[in-house]
Amino acid sequence: MGLLLGVGLDLVFADPRRGHPVAGFGGAAARLEKRIYGDSRARGAVFTGLCVGTAAALGVLAERGRRPVARCLLTAGATWAVLGGTSLGREGMIMARRLEEGDLDGARSRLSHLCARDPSGLDADALARATVESLAENTGDAVVAPLLWGAVAGVPGLIAYRAVNTLDAMVGYRGVRYERFGWASARLDDLANWIPARVTGLLTVLAAPSVAEDGARRAVAESWRILRRDGAAHPSPNAGRCESAAAGALGVRLGGANSYGGSLEIRPELGDGRKPRVEDVRRAVRLSRAVTAGAALTAALLALLGRRRGTRE
């Protein structure tokens, strides 16, 4: 009940503009980084362990001794704090409107809310592709993964997962400063998302009828086919599962050349369809929302099964 209520709170309130708990965690992590930073994997591992361990411990303490109603409300609050599905969908719709209006400068300036890709020089279709890819990948990170961790580990799982994901965004990118120090955060994020990314792929296959253009069965079959064929082609061990399933469901072809901070990356193409167009952005938002609904039901079912098993034992 707490997980479902938290999803409802996210639908109504989305992320707060000020005083977000995740932003508070990020600020504390940044201060700790200044104290212990060193160009080594060992220091990075200590930094990651302290941040994630503290977050998980706070979750354990918060849950301990709570009555059922209080625990439900606590879970709801924690779920709302770590979810980003509604804000993700809103960003997608902002991009859709700006692209539909021909406001390319506005769309380029807004793309940073979804990904770190360099938007300069991107035309409307390239911006649409970047948005579709980001919506597919971030649905796994911002919705499916936290809900699954909450289902199996309660409030500690919710908070610890968001801590891991936040650290990856802060220090996990490969660069001169974080190539060694951020290694532990990046690898832990890969591990924490390994199962959720594959669940995201499966939920996307099931949600394919919500965006079908040539029949529901065909959309499901194509999404499943592309997921199986192209899911492992992406350089990320997890993002490819989310993006390939979305490519099949939407009937588009994702991947290609991406620029990040002046560095050009050529990524394998995912899917057999046409290149994404502006009108596909709204479809990608609809698909993300359908996956969110499926993830909420899946997480609630897992939590219920775990509760019944615990009661029998």
Rank of each mutant, 00 (worst) to 15 (best):
R309D: 13
I195Y: 06
S210L: 05
I195V: 15
E269K: 01
A293R: 08
P209R: 00
T200H: 10
R228W: 15
R97Q: 03
S263L: 02
E179K: 12
T200D: 09
D15Q: 14
Y37L: 07
G231K: 01
T166S: 12
R253T: 11
S185C: 09
S134H: 02
A70K: 04
P196A: 11
S112K: 15
L188F: 01
S223E: 13
G53Y: 06
F25M: 09
P196M: 11
A212C: 00
A296K: 03
L61P: 06
C242W: 15
S259N: 05
G27A: 01
L9E: 08
A233G: 06
A293S: 05
V211H: 03
G182D: 04
G231W: 05
G6F: 02
E91Q: 15
A197W: 08
R117M: 03
S259D: 15
R18F: 13
D125M: 06
V46Y: 11
A290E: 06
G261S: 05
L191T: 14
A293C: 11
N138H: 04
G310H: 10
L104Q: 14
E243P: 10
E137H: 00
A29S: 02
G150S: 04
G306M: 09
A160C: 12
A56P: 03
G102L: 14
R198Y: 07
F181L: 10
R286Q: 10
N138V: 09
A151P: 11
